[in-house]
Design a protein around this nucleic acid. Structure first.
Lengths: 116, 116
DNA sequence: GTAGAACCTGACATCAATGTGAGGGGCAAG
DNA sequence: CTTGCCCCTCACATTGATGTCAGGTTCTAC
């Protein structure tokens, strides 16, 4: 498929897809005229990339993490360190957000009685 | 206290403190020569601001949220909507991060046996 | 073959919080 | 009064993912 279709199937903008390629997250064959041609498997890969981005990972981290998710055997001790670092960062962010959400929750619960 | 001391006490850079003021998050008296003079209560306020920033709230959201945390009676239905919106956003982000952390966890657990 | 959609590259814009540097004033200690 | 540190404002830089525009090529359908 071409980039427009991949965009529709993944929700990523065409711009973003080209950016992912630039960062080494995805690859594409090229037609003789230079247009990108994507393998069907790329759809899931992009969806995964988007999940990781949404979770706050950067493209540099994703470049390291993705191969480990596709092929566990590719995990070296260096990559494991990276995985652990990202996991720990997520754990911290989760704790921070849970604490803040609870604080907001409490304020919401203590809302003054409605006036009208 | 002056801005340098507030910076030390809160961990926020002087630059950030001035930025918080610009965004309406904190206030300061001015000495005759124009130097900022902070009330002791500002320390806790800044710490709270930093917590909210770390949790991913923007300064615009914090402007709305802060008064409600200091004075529940200041909560209008409009502000409640804002609080709810931020809480829901946090809930989504937490779910996203927990899912991703668990995925990383699983990969880490499935690490190939150490080579050396 | 021609119109219009989809694609290409390249480059500049955006947002938010923060860094950094310039150029100048304030204040305490010697 | 000078040295040194703290403060002031203004303004430009940074980071990362994405938007957007320009100028040009390719593909699809008529």
């Amino acid at each position: 498929m071409r980039v427009g279709e991949l965009s529709q199937r993944t929700g990523a903008s065409v711009r973003s897809l080209r950016y992912y390629e630039e960062r080494g997250l995805i690859e594409a064959d090229r037609s003789t005229s230079g247009q990108r041609q994507y393998d069907a498997a790329v759809v899931d890969r992009v969806l995964l990339i988007r999940q990781l981005l949404t979770a706050g990972l950067g493209t540099a981290a994703i470049v390291d993490v993705l191969p480990c998710m596709a092929e566990p055997a590719s995990q070296t001790s260096l990559l494991t360190a990276r995985l652990v670092a990202e996991r720990d960062r997520l754990t911290d962010e989760i704790a921070q957000r849970v604490a803040t959400r609870d604080a907001l929750e409490q304020i919401i619960g203590a809302a003054p009685p409605l006036q009208g």
